[in-house]
């Protein structure tokens, strides 16, 4: 069986909102180390994954490895019935075909329970090579969202150039062009609610062209984290990571575009 109590429903709500437009259904893999997920969109262009470590739940109990097939649209609708500050208890009894979600209000005076039907999903796992990236950019997630939204008004793709100076986002379209340069700032304030600066850690400069349609989908994870890490190497898929507090992360992979 699985029983996992998450102190804040808002975390699960935000995670589901940040993948439901990319992936319609997927298996949630549960083990004694936590709950994880990995799935690609239908066109095999973007891969979404997340991990919530067992220590982010209190308590957490998972007796054996489970693969629970979830339809995101259903889960999203059910999670809308939870208050942001509700406690969520995720419960699965062995050999059942449902997953139970219990929402408890902060004062414990309102307890609601919803069951979601599980699907039998035959998913193929991609093995992602464990690699060192040539360039690691860390920047404000809301700034990243703003840049992706702004450049979408110009073109369908963005060129990300990372140098020691900083990171530049450029787009070109039929009606003109636009760019935003974020200079590297002295220090990143990830503590409290300070403004998150931009840092670039690099072995060599990287330049990649990426689809803004997908990037705009990834920015749906921005409410989970003040910052986003953009890990890049020339010619290979980029990894975007939004940390979920200190209990996990959500990652997106997207291959660069090439000119034929």
């Amino acid at each position: 069986m699985l029983e996992a109590r998450l102190p804040q429903a808002s975390i699960l709500k935000k995670i589901v909102e940040s993948v439901k437009d990319l992936v319609s259904q997927a298996n949630f893999d549960c083990s004694d180390s936590g709950i994880s997920f990995q799935a690609m969109d239908e066109s095999n262009i973007a891969l979404s994954s997340f991990l919530l470590r067992a220590d982010g739940f209190d308590p957490y109990r998972c007796d054996r490895n489970l693969s629970l097939g979830i339809k995101f649209a259903s889960l999203s609708k059910i999670l809308k019935c939870a208050g942001n500050d509700d406690v969520v208890i995720i419960r699965y009894m062995d050999d059942a075909d449902i997953l139970s979600l219990v929402f408890e209000s902060p004062n414990n005076e309102r307890i609601s329970e919803f069951d979601i039907k599980l699907l039998d999903i035959d998913s193929e796992y991609l093995s992602i090579p464990d690699q060192e990236f040539e360039c690691k950019v860390k920047m404000s997630s809301s700034e990243f969202s703003r840049i992706c939204r702004d450049l979408m008004t110009i073109g369908a793709s963005v060129v990300i150039d990372a140098t020691k100076e900083g990171v530049k986002f450029s787009a070109t379209g039929d009606d003109g062009s636009g760019s935003v340069l974020l200079k590297q700032s002295g220090s990143i304030d990830n503590e409290g609610r300070g403004v998150v600066g931009t840092s670039v850690e690099m072995v060599e400069p990287v330049s990649l062209e990426l689809s803004l349609k997908y990037l705009n989908n990834f920015t749906k994870a921005a409410p989970l984290s003040d910052s986003v890490a953009i890990n890049m190497s020339n010619g290979i898929p980029v990894m975007f990571q939004f940390d979920v507090g200190d209990i996990g992360y959500i990652r997106y992979f997207l291959a660069p575009q090439i000119k034929d």
């Binding site: 066109s43 262009i45 796992y125 991609l126 689809s211 290979i236 992979f253 291959a255 575009q257």
Partner: peptide, 14 residues
């Protein structure tokens, strides 16, 4: 012409 590469050409199925 711009071509979007699939992830399948980078990440293998085990």
């Amino acid at each position: 012409k711009i071509h979007q590469q699939s992830l399948l050409s980078f990440f293998g199925t085990p």
